[in-house]
């Protein structure tokens, strides 16, 4: 079955990314770069889970827009709170 293969590949990518995240800790690089890389990997993983497992890539466009609007809110919240000194 197609899905079996597709989902397993996605799962493998997720696991590999997770292992990379952990391995990044402790290597000698500027710490900001490490943080940004890890968060970027986490973001890609979230998109993979949402897109393939949650079927967001195959849903009605407006569900994606709806979801994106809450993601927009999150960015607004976190940036304003963190940097609004």
């Amino acid at each position: 079955m197609d899905e079996e293969v597709k989902y397993t590949v996605v799962w493998l990518i997720l696991v590999v990314f997770t292992v990379i995240e952990v391995q990044l800790i402790g290597i000698s690089l500027v710490y900001t770069i490490i943080i940004l890389t890890i968060l970027l990997l986490a973001g890609v993983k979230a998109i993979l889970v949402a897109g393939f497992f949650q079927h967001l890539f195959y849903e009605k466009k407006y569900i994606g827009i709806f979801y994106a609007s809450s993601v927009f809110m999150i960015v607004a919240i976190i940036l304003t709170w963190t940097f609004g000194r």
């Binding site: 995240e21 990044l24 800790i25 890890i38 990997l41 979230a46 889970v49």
Partner: peptide, 14 residues
């Protein structure tokens, strides 16, 4: 699951 994908780096790694 997605929530955990962010909690893990934020609370365990960085």
């Amino acid at each position: 699951d997605i929530v955990w994908l962010f909690l893990f780096p934020l609370f365990y790694l960085i």
